[in-house]
Amino acid sequence: MAEVQPRYDDGRQTTLLGVAGLVFEALPEGALWWADEGLLVVADLHLEKGSSFARRGQMLPPYDTAETLARLGSLVARLAPRRVVALGDSFHDDGGAERLAARDRATLAGLQSGRDWVWIAGNHDPRPHGLGGTCVAELSLGPVTFRHEPRAGGAMGEIAGHLHPAAVVAGNGKWVRRKCFAGDGHRLVLPAFGAYAGGLNILDRAFAGLFAPATFRAFMLGDRVYPVSPRLLRRD
């Protein structure tokens, strides 16, 4: 099996990691870049989470959708991807697509124009919507499959979201908690990209059994992406 050792590439100022023998770039913004295919992957945007909470009486600041789209927009502008894949839970609930404000709707349309856009269904947003692009259950490209929720058991070449991984390391008398990618060369789980989407410690039971212990790494987000051995990880 072709293994790709995760590493920081000084020349490209980016962290490379492997899934099923293919090389991807983990971006500090929390997105995955497949340069050969011009493919940008983001997970768990949770757009309209603010208004979803507001419906139930918790008036979160209504700026999360604009914020998330702006972050995505700057990546799109920089990388000019041919295709964007959103790994599910793109909206916090099924009504999110309808609640999208006109301004945000226009921003999204701008991002989609001139490229393929794939919405993968998530547990928060299982129904297809009419916001441009294609709505699918999952997407396979060569040896890798993009889906929302990681499948139990060993999955070769799976790129997923859903779990919102985050990791904690300690040192120099302080501890640092960051969102992270979690991968073992066979499977990769992306951090949640949404402005209101939090992180779950990858030592949580929800991650149990997903990764091969020997090759499992956390890729923590910071000024760059830092590959970290699970040996150094801490609980919250």
Partner: peptide
């Protein structure tokens, strides 16, 4: 070493963790 100052700019910690790897 007993008192930990939590959660402030932690790039140095992350860098060290990555170097360890």
């Amino acid at each position: 070493g007993k008192e930990a100052i939590a959660g402030e700019a932690g790039e140095d910690v992350l860098r060290e963790a990555a170097e360890d790897l």
